[in-house]
Amino acid sequence: MNNVAYVTTPGGEELAILPRSELDALRESLDHAQALGSFRAGQIPGLTPDEARALVAAVSPLAFWRRYRKLTQAVLSASVGVTQHYLSEIENGKRGGDVALWLRLARALEVPVEGLVDEGD
């Protein structure tokens, strides 16, 4: 954070200008802190090293968490009001879903919605 420049707007508001790389590093630190807070609050279960590797290797975080909760696609899809085929396509990245669906999935799987999507999505 050595390259921060400060400017004052005509209205008197002080703004900080920093390089994009430093902004990205701050965002990454915030994401990490929020995830750690969610873990400590019991919102995200702790994973064993094998489970963490399985999460990384899974076709999608949604697929991992469904398996982690020992749910079939048929059971999860019925609980959130979509077809099993549609859920399969979402898990495999072939289709998306609206925000309401992702919230229902997160509730059904007992994980924050942020835990169900890849960062690039």
Rank of each mutant, 00 (worst) to 15 (best):
M1P: 05
M1C: 04
N2D: 09
N2R: 11
N3R: 11
V4I: 13
V4H: 03
V4F: 01
A5P: 00
Y6V: 07
V7G: 09
T8W: 03
T9I: 05
T9E: 09
P10I: 11
G11P: 00
G12I: 06
E13M: 11
E14W: 01
L15S: 06
L15Q: 13
A16Q: 10
A16C: 03
P19G: 04
P19A: 09
P19M: 05
P19D: 07
R20T: 08
S21P: 00
E22K: 06
D24F: 05
D24N: 09
A25V: 01
A25Q: 12
L26H: 12
L26A: 14
L26W: 12
R27F: 09
E28V: 02
E28L: 10
L30A: 14
L30E: 13
D31K: 11
D31Q: 11
D31M: 05
H32D: 06
Q34A: 11
A35V: 02
S38H: 10
A41I: 02
A41F: 05
G42P: 13
G42D: 08
I44S: 06
P45S: 09
T48P: 10
T48I: 08
T48K: 13
P49K: 07
D50C: 04
D50K: 13
E51M: 12
E51I: 05
A52N: 12
A52T: 11
R53I: 06
A54C: 06
A54E: 14
L55T: 09
V56D: 15
A57N: 15
A58M: 10
A58T: 07
A58N: 11
V59W: 04
S60K: 09
F64W: 07
W65F: 06
W65H: 02
R67W: 02
R67G: 15
R69M: 06
K70T: 03
T72G: 10
Q73S: 07
A74P: 00
V75Q: 13
L76V: 03
A78Q: 14
S79H: 09
G81A: 12
T83A: 10
Q84D: 02
Q84N: 08
H85Y: 07
H85K: 14
Y86A: 10
Y86F: 14
Y86V: 01
L87S: 03
L87H: 07
S88R: 14
E89S: 10
E89G: 04
E89R: 15
G93F: 03
K94T: 02
G97C: 04
G97L: 02
G97T: 03
V99A: 15
W102G: 02
W102D: 01
R104G: 04
R104W: 08
A106G: 03
R107L: 08
R107K: 15
R107M: 02
R107P: 00
A108T: 08
L109Y: 05
E110C: 08
E110W: 03
V111A: 06
V111W: 04
V113N: 01
E114N: 09
E114G: 11
G115L: 01
L116E: 01
V117P: 00
D118C: 05
G120N: 11
G120S: 14
D121F: 12
